[in-house]
Design a protein around this nucleic acid. Structure first.
Lengths: 235, 235
DNA sequence: CGAGCATTTGACACGTTTCAATCTCTGTGG
DNA sequence: CCACAGAGATTGAAACGTGTCAAATGCTCG
């Protein structure tokens, strides 16, 4: 993106410490967020006291795109220290109105976001705890642009449980089994793929849904379909 | 929408019989669909043979908005006879580029669609079969613009199961319990609310996520927040 | 050192699935 | 008009996956 655009967006970088809540459930939030670094989660709190983590956005992800995360209903909180850009909704919309290319770009990002949610829905409905956990760890690695060896992940087992629709205790048992089967290890804040191919097979993981299906107009600036470079998280 | 816009969209109405498949999983579909009437479902077929229904779009709903349903990954099939408008993706995009108001409109529709998926995710993760089923029946009634008494619904118990992440057999038992508790009756293609207030309480249903949060620019054309008129499904 | 939080483990309860069979309805052809 | 086929709905019994409860362990930070 060009500097002029960045200026018009009035994007201001902000830092939040681990545990901070960027946007509360129920607040009428009109900001757009772009994650620069750190782990956060979009979650809903139900009346029965349980928490559902909708997504764990990562570097480069965009939230709030016209209330895209269900604005005003969900909250955004930080798992680790987080740096993100905040953009007033109004200037965001103004820029989109004037820049068709950017509009298409953001529409694609929104579409990918939806695809991720749909995949999680499928996962929760039709995959066992083992498959589901495996799938999440693979998905997250892919979204991070991490290699085949692993990545660092500050989520607790409790966070994982809230994201996967399990209890913390069962997540613990599931992680142990994945480790004992020598598929993945999730310990001390880091994920290690022990046998990625077997893990992919177990989870039924197909990364197609994570790709940005750039329309032809954007092809030249987009990376090739099967070895995407991580998008820059700077404006 | 004005006639000129409708022309530019090149929207053509089409009829499909019950059981027809409008778009196959895996096809590279670039069309946008607007449902005019009938019941259909967006679904994914997993390698293990099971089917996951992502959504049951209804009159006025829009699909495929830039590959919004995870284009190329999911399929659209008809439960009943269905009439829908098909719009070539390219002309749709062209119109959006020229009409900022329409862009915002569609962005909101997409946002609502995402909110629905998020709600289903939450439902599947954190609500029991009974609550989940109750929630779905309420949501669908709301989306149909049906009254407090009930509505017609051609879905089979098996369809419901695939949408809710349950087995058909358990859906049957769940529906029986809902009937015996005198909350809802789902029989012979029609849903009857026996005690809607109790049902709402059981499901923890809050329709806020179904509202279109129209920005101020569209306020005058939008209906009031708490008694929305069904949108027209004609162009 | 103790407090607090995350992780680990075991035993048991419960919700949901699986398997198998029966029943009801609807449309069709003899 | 009846027999039959096929799809959906219903019911029961048993198996299985995950949740619940309870307790111990390990870790980090004041």
């Amino acid at each position: 993106m060009e500097d002029k655009t960045a200026e018009l967006l009035e994007a201001t970088p902000r830092n939040y410490p681990a545990g901070a809540v960027v946007s509360h459930q129920g607040d009428s939030n009109t900001r757009i967020f772009i994650i620069a670094s750190g782990w956060s989660c979009v979650s809903r709190h139900l009346s029965n006291g349980s928490r559902q983590i909708i997504d764990t956005p990562l570097r480069g992800d965009i939230l709030g795109f016209p209330q895209f995360d269900g604005g005003g209903i969900n909250s955004l909180s930080c798992v680790s220290d987080v740096t993100l850009y905040e953009i007033p909704g109004q200037s965001f919309r103004k820029v989109l109105d004037q820049n068709a290319t950017l509009s298409v770009l953001f529409a694609r990002i929104a579409a990918r976001q939806h695809a991720i949610t749909v995949e999680r829905l499928t996962s929760v409905c039709r995959r066992s705890a083992l498959e589901r956990t495996a799938h999440y760890l693979l998905e997250t690695g892919e979204r991070l642009g991490a290699g085949d060896h692993g990545y660092d992940c500050p989520l607790t087992q409790h966070d994982l449980a809230d994201a996967l629709g399990l209890t913390q205790i069962h997540v613990n048992r599931t992680l142990r089994e994945l480790r004992e089967r020598e598929l993945v290890s999730f310990r001390a804040g880091s994920v290690e793929f022990l046998s990625r191919p077997k893990l992919v097979k177990l989870a039924g993981f197909d990364r197609a849904y994570l790709q940005y299906n750039w329309p032809s107009a954007l092809q030249k600036s987009a990376s090739s379909r099967h070895s995407p470079a991580p998008r820059p998280a700077t404006l």
